[in-house]
Amino acid sequence: MGTDKSKSGDLVQGTLDMLVLKALERGPMHGYGVAEWIHESSADVLRVEEGALYPALHRLELKGLLKSEWGTSENNRRAKYYALTAAGRKYLSAEREHWGRMTSAIARVLQRA
């Protein structure tokens, strides 16, 4: 089950959680929707492997950052909808800030002549 790290578009460890939370910021969505949204928003660069997505969703739910509910999808199928909790919202903004600082710091290091 080991994921192939060399494959491009793979996600840095820990960033998947952030992206999932971000995807749900706009409102409740099912797992497939989350994966599609990430794929589209990244202009097809990021592809979430489903084998990692669902464990991530369940993990976040266990941590209390997400809550889930069974509902009906746009094409009338039974689907599980995930939504951000207050804790999840707080966690997301903290992570986003942290991420911003990290990437700009890394960028500065890389740009240095």
Binding site: M1, E49, E50, G51, Y54, P55, H58, R59, L62
Partner: peptide
Amino acid sequence: KEFGNPTLARERCREMR
């Protein structure tokens, strides 16, 4: 194939809980 092994994903979710 891309989806990966659904049983494994399920197993991982279950173990987590």
